[in-house]
């Protein structure tokens, strides 16, 4: 296995092992996501709206808020323990850290979604709606990929700055906007069966993901400058 991939894989496995050994962060993010589901479902029961009209927006607002919480964790562990320097020395090429942390963030986000999305589906009353499943899964996957990629890049930029926890969401929201628009429209297309009409947005999501997955290869060496 090439050194780049092997090192990224080792960091990824170490991060997951740490995450599952101290489940407090994963659990608190999951509880937050579940609370969002309940709050939205109670609030939206009071207004008359078709589930397919509101479900996409509610789904992505929930995912983005969960992502903000979950993604900040990726570099915070190293920052808190001071292990970032040791990891930078061991990794050599700093972009290895980006890909390891990106994969870790994407895995955590997808794990949370596996629980929260079906809950939202049921509680929002969308259970009776027919859905174009491949488009729905593609929208959720590509949207989550983009959130994880942008989140990891910004986390790398902010982790060594004072007030990182405040800076991260402020910088993340403007970058999440195009992703959010594409993801919401694709999800809605999957629910109302207008797959052809939203294919352009799906390509936009894929292009967004590609850019934010490749650009850090060039930038990350400067991002984590000490």
């Amino acid at each position: 296995m090439p050194s780049f991939v092997r090192k990224a894989w080792l960091i990824y496995c170490k991060d997951l092992r740490e995450e599952f050994r101290t489940t407090d962060h994963l659990l608190s993010t999951l509880v937050f996501g579940t609370m969002l589901v309940f709050v939205f479902s109670f609030a939206l029961q009071l207004v008359e709206a078709a589930p397919e009209a509101i479900f996409p927006a509610v789904l992505w607002v929930s995912i983005v808020f969960m992502a903000i919480l979950a993604l900040q964790r990726s570099f915070a562990k190293e920052k808190d323990s001071g292990a970032l320097d040791a990891l930078l020395l061991a990794a050599g090429d700093r972009s290895i850290l980006f890909y390891a942390k990106f994969l870790y963030s994407l895995t955590v986000l997808l794990l949370l979604e596996v629980i929260v999305v079906p809950l939202l589906w049921v509680f929002m009353g969308a259970a009776g709606t027919t859905v174009h499943m491949p488009l729905f899964v593609a929208a959720v996957f590509l949207g989550s990929w983009g959130l994880a990629a942008v989140g990891t890049l910004l986390n790398g930029i902010t982790v060594q700055l004072p007030g990182a926890r405040l800076l991260f969401p402020i910088l993340a929201f403007p970058l999440f906007v195009p992703l959010l628009i594409g993801a919401v429209l694709c999800t809605q297309g999957a629910l109302v069966g207008e797959t052809r009409a939203v294919l352009g947005w799906l390509y936009l999501l894929a292009a967004f993901d590609l850019v934010f997955t490749i650009v850090p290869l060039l930038l990350f060496d400067y991002v984590l400058e000490g």
Binding site: E18, T22, D85, A86
Partner: peptide, 15 residues
């Protein structure tokens, strides 16, 4: 190889 022992121990507490 360069071994670096910093002011902080730089360890993973849960490992």
């Amino acid at each position: 190889n360069i071994g670096y022992i910093a002011h902080q121990p730089m360890l993973y507490g849960s490992l």
